[in-house]
Computed example of a mutant assay.
Amino acid sequence: MCSLWALERSDARKRAQRNDQSYKQSLSYKNTKGQSSVKNFGQLVQHLFNHKTYHRGQVSTLLSQENVDVGVTDLLLEIPESSMQ
């Protein structure tokens, strides 16, 4: 599970470095059925992380039910303190 949290921290850093304008752009894509869509990129990113969190919770629950110690699952505790600017 430690590598999962390392990826989460890496994702958070990458998101923080993004320019706000990029989140306001539209993104066109095709779903797994080949249907085309054009949606707001920022809202798609928000959906991606919400959906990922949902599944992370499912995995954590299943492991806990099998008495597997999943360790710290609160990402807030894994985010390092930063200095005020």
Rank of each mutant, 00 (worst) to 15 (best):
N40D: 12
S26F: 05
T61Y: 01
S83A: 11
Q58D: 05
Q17K: 11
Q17W: 03
L62R: 06
P80G: 00
R18T: 03
S60T: 10
D74E: 11
G57V: 11
S28V: 00
V38C: 04
S37R: 06
Y29V: 00
K30Q: 15
T61K: 05
T73V: 00
L76W: 04
Q17C: 04
W5D: 05
D20P: 15
Y54W: 09
D20Q: 11
N31W: 03
V59Y: 02
G34N: 05
G57F: 09
E81M: 11
R56S: 14
D20T: 10
F49G: 00
F49R: 03
P80K: 05
T73F: 01
V72E: 14
T53L: 14
R13E: 13
L48V: 02
T61H: 03
V72M: 01
T53S: 15
S60V: 14
Y29D: 02
Q43W: 06
E66Q: 13
S10T: 03
N19Y: 11
K52T: 15
Q85T: 14
Q65R: 08
S82V: 08
E66M: 14
S82M: 05
P80I: 04
Q35Y: 08
H47Q: 04
L63F: 08
I79R: 12
F49E: 07
G34S: 09
L48A: 03
Q65S: 02
R56Q: 11
G57S: 14
Q46N: 10
Q46E: 12
R56T: 14
E66V: 07
V68H: 05
K30G: 11
D20A: 14
Q46Y: 09
V45F: 06
Q65I: 00
T73P: 01
S64K: 04
K30V: 08
F41L: 12
L63E: 00
P80W: 01
H47Y: 13
L75V: 04
Q46I: 05
G34T: 02
V68M: 01
G42K: 02
D74A: 12
L62G: 01
T32N: 08
S60H: 02
N31M: 00
S3R: 09
L75F: 13
L7N: 11
S28Y: 06
C2F: 08
